[in-house]
């Protein structure tokens, strides 16, 4: 029993069986996290380095907790406090760390494809913790687990992904995963934030009408506007964005059914989500965070034998 891949670079490379295995294993780790001793010895012979070339709170803490709860040894690396600022290349940095006998690498990088490049050159198992605007596979997996728990399954479920689709690695990982598991996806947002040929390329529906999309879906996964990745004006103001695509209590109450609200964080309150939506019973945002640790434990556990096979 093992995954069909040595690394977790993206959901794109996973088979439906891989996804099911990770989610099934994550559910068992969720139970571990309820125990008096929230820790198992599975990875006590493994050293993991967390390489974060880009800012992160949730993902970094979540990975670190997952590693510790598997009894792995962890080393943390933040680009701003390292020799990267002295001009060292990515490959040199990683090879230097690996020569200190590290077994697995968790990496976040602002360049799309950075973990794929690394996978071709180093022997350790690599887990992508977000690469530029490409993928954020563990977020896709934890979103899937959260949808499964909130609605009872993935097959046939209608999921709307709303907001800055263009710059979102969360959107791409979610789309790949939901398509593979038989869910239906609609992306919704301002035309300037939705890639032109996404319908044909990724087999999703596209809508520019928020209310219509919310009426259609079972689950709305709401994304943050990634101002740090936009170097041109794609919409006129945050206030205008909020008026057209922000989800308010009033809008939710006007729908004919109750939908589940998700958000990968960090939330910009009052832009894409109003506070009385984010903090309501319909929102499973904090359950997503809780599921994140279990999903990352599952991924680390299932890839921990990569070097032996």
């Amino acid at each position: 029993m093992q995954l069909s891949t040595r690394h977790l670079l993206g959901i794109k490379d996973l088979s439906p069986n891989d996804i099911s295995l990770i989610l099934q294993t994550a559910e068992q780790f969720k139970e571990v996290l309820q125990r008096p001793v929230k820790k198992v010895p599975s990875l006590r012979d493994i050293v993991v380095v967390n390489l974060f070339f880009e800012n992160s709170t949730r993902t970094r803490i979540s990975f670190e907790l997952a590693e510790k709860r598997l009894s792995a040894d962890t080393v943390n690396f933040t680009a701003s406090a390292s020799s990267v600022s002295k001009g060292e290349t990515l490959l040199d940095t990683v090879n230097n760390i690996l020569s200190m006998k590290v077994d697995m690498v968790v990496m976040r990088h602002s360049a799309s494809g950075a973990p794929h490049f690394l996978a071709q050159h180093i022997p350790a198992a690599i887990i992508n913790a977000g690469d530029g605007i490409n993928e954020h596979p563990t977020q896709g997996l934890l979103d899937a687990l959260s949808i499964k728990q909130a609605t009872g399954g993935l097959e046939g479920k209608k999921v709307a992904i709303i907001g800055d689709i263009m710059h979102s690695r969360v959107a791409l990982s979610n789309i790949y995963l939901l398509n593979k598991m038989g869910a239906k996806v609609t992306v919704c947002g301002p035309p300037t934030l939705i890639p032109k040929y996404i319908r044909e390329a990724l087999n999703v529906e596209v809508s520019y009408d928020l209310k219509e999309t919310l009426e259609w879906c079972d689950v709305a996964n709401v994304l943050r506007i990634q101002l740090e990745r936009q170097n041109q004006v794609l919409f006129s103001s945050l206030r205008e964005y909020n008026l057209a695509y922000g989800i308010s209590r009033k809008l939710l109450d006007s729908l004919h059914k109750k939908i589940v609200i998700m958000h990968p964080g960090p939330i910009n309150r009052g832009v894409e989500l109003d506070s009385d939506v984010a903090d309501s019973k319909q929102s499973i945002i904090l359950q997503q965070v809780e599921n994140g640790v279990a999903v990352r434990m599952a991924v680390l556990y299932l890839l921990s034998n990569s070097n032996n096979n």
């Binding site: 029993m1 093992q2 295995l21 099934q24 294993t25 559910e27 068992q28 139970e31 571990v32 556990y301 299932l302 034998n305």
Partner: peptide, 8 residues
């Protein structure tokens, strides 16, 4: 070898 985990 890794084994499939069951419910506790």
């Amino acid at each position: 070898e890794l084994h499939i985990a069951n419910q506790t």
